[in-house]
């Protein structure tokens, strides 16, 4: 039998191309997005995450490639030899503005983070161009294409009641931009539990458990990895949700401390978000090779025991 395997590395092929007038050289297979980032050219992304395979659905990352009729998603398209890429052409800027504006006009982006806020400013997003928001509806229907006729006086939105069906996390799909990250993280990109899928179609497409059952009836194992990848606060730890509801959530008063999970011996790094000497949520660093940002139910939620201690008894 063979001694230690010598993996023969093929010499890496280098691709030469032009991005915003600059010549670039990157290893073959590098995406346009990665190449742009190596050039410090900012390309906005919403559905892209380093730890997940790109689904290229948000189209915020589109760039213009000479010779290509439509714009091209930078997150998934590899850079090719002699490609000429513009990251800030008029067409690109228009599309980015519209993508952000479409989202802002239909979902609540208020917790999508400072980058998104900055891009909205930068690209001149004005969701009110589409008229006043329609009143919040009930849950989106599961069935394809089911919606009433419109007279166009109000703009349709994804507004709907928050789903609170367990004590660990809530689902506020009025914030969902359908980036598929939760489905990917619950599925074969990480957790392999497959509690979530995309159901319905078109504007009625939505993230769903099987037959829209509440989480406790679903396959969910409460690893919280969907919450960990959600970019807009549509999935939120109940601890955070409750504080926000009570108007007490205050990130300026929070610290984030890295430590190691107190349960099994795998050694997952936990980021403890602490406000007023209480753990208010637990995340894990995306770039840590042990977890890739993922945890299990115990690491994610099993911290209550340190906060539920009675005052220490006097030593006898």
């Amino acid at each position: 039998m063979a001694p230690p395997l010598q993996v023969k590395q093929l010499p890496e092929r280098i691709v030469h191309a032009t991005i915003d007038g600059q010549r670039v050289a990157v290893p073959e297979g590098t995406t346009i997005l990665a190449a742009c980032r190596s050039q410090a050219a900012e390309v906005p992304t919403l559905c892209f995450l380093e730890t997940l395979a790109p689904v290229n659905v948000c189209r915020a990352c589109v760039v213009e490639v000479e010779g290509s009729r439509a714009l091209v998603p930078a997150c998934s398209r590899p850079l090719e030899t002699d490609m000429v890429v513009s990251t800030r052409s008029k067409r690109v800027d228009k599309s980015r503005r519209m993508v952000l504006e479409f989202l802002a006009s239909s979902v609540d982006m208020s917790l999508a983070g400072p980058d998104v806020e900055r891009w909205m400013e930068e690209y001149g997003v004005d969701p009110d161009r589409y008229g006043p928001k329609a009143a919040a509806g009930a849950d989106l229907d599961a069935r394809a294409g089911r919606h009433g006729p419109t007279v166009g006086a109000e703009r349709a939105t994804a507004a709907q009641p928050v789903k609170v069906d367990n004590d660990l996390y809530v689902r506020d799909y009025s914030r969902c931009i359908l980036c598929y990250k939760c489905v990917e993280a619950c599925g074969d990109q990480a957790q392999h539990t497959f509690a979530l899928a995309v159901a319905g179609r078109g504007f009625d497409a939505h993230i769903a458990t099987e037959f829209e059952v509440p989480l406790p009836e679903s396959a969910c194992v409460y690893c919280g990895n969907c919450v960990g990848v959600c970019p807009t606060g549509a999935l939120m730890f109940k601890s955070e949700y409750d504080l926000r509801q009570a108007n007490q959530w205050d990130e300026s008063r929070q610290t984030v401390t890295d430590t190691i999970c107190p349960y099994c011996g795998v050694g997952c790094t936990l980021e403890l978000h602490v406000q007023d000497n209480a753990i208010v949520k637990v995340t894990s660093p995306m770039d840590h090779e042990v977890t890739s940002g993922h945890l299990c139910i115990k690491g994610r939620f099993g911290f209550e025991f340190v906060q539920q201690r009675p005052p220490a008894a006097e030593p006898r």
Partner: peptide, 26 residues
């Protein structure tokens, strides 16, 4: 794991830091 400083070692022999995130109870 969250009220004191120190290290732990995982199953892959990885020594990692634990850090104090909370003030312990009185």
């Amino acid at each position: 794991w969250c009220e004191a400083e120190g290290t732990v070692t995982s199953s892959e022999r990885r020594v990692q830091r634990v850090r104090q995130a909370l003030e312990p109870p009185l």
